[in-house]
Amino acid sequence: MKVVVQESPFEPGQVVADYQNSLPRGKHGGVVTFVGTMRDFNDGQDVAAMRLDYYPGMTEKHIEQVCEEAAQRWDIVDSLVVHRHGDMYPNDAIVLVAVWSAHRANAFDACRFIINYLKERAPFWKCETTPAGHKRWVEHNSRDPKAEVVSGNGSAQTVE
């Protein structure tokens, strides 16, 4: 398991390939990845740039906890999360979640769980800049209709 919160841009395909090369050969039958990228629009307005703030220490801790929980709930080989902070622009990769497992179902389920939990609980905040230079904090994320509801004590329940 590896969690990285970094300011510098990254190329998701290369990061996945490099990490996969460090895994034991022949133990995984597939990798499922989710890459979140920056849109140039949000809530009906154009967006020219964005800054992501985070809580150093707490953010990494919560992403590590969700990766550990995913490893307990599903039979997976390994997981990797890379998340940007700082200034970024449309098309930039914001977050990468990659999960390796012997069979695809566990990798799909664990990957979805990690990104949904991360979006609900990991302390990041987006501040968007419009083309006119106006800055605004994003007040909420859009929800995956199959997202798990996370309670205050960190446990999760699926609602569909």
Partner: peptide, 29 residues
Amino acid sequence: IAVNMAYTDAAAALKDGDELAFFPPVTGG
């Protein structure tokens, strides 16, 4: 609300040296 980097609520007790944080809903990912 977080105390020592763990989510909690307004009724939580504090002791000397604790780190308390207040922030709006998170919007990462």
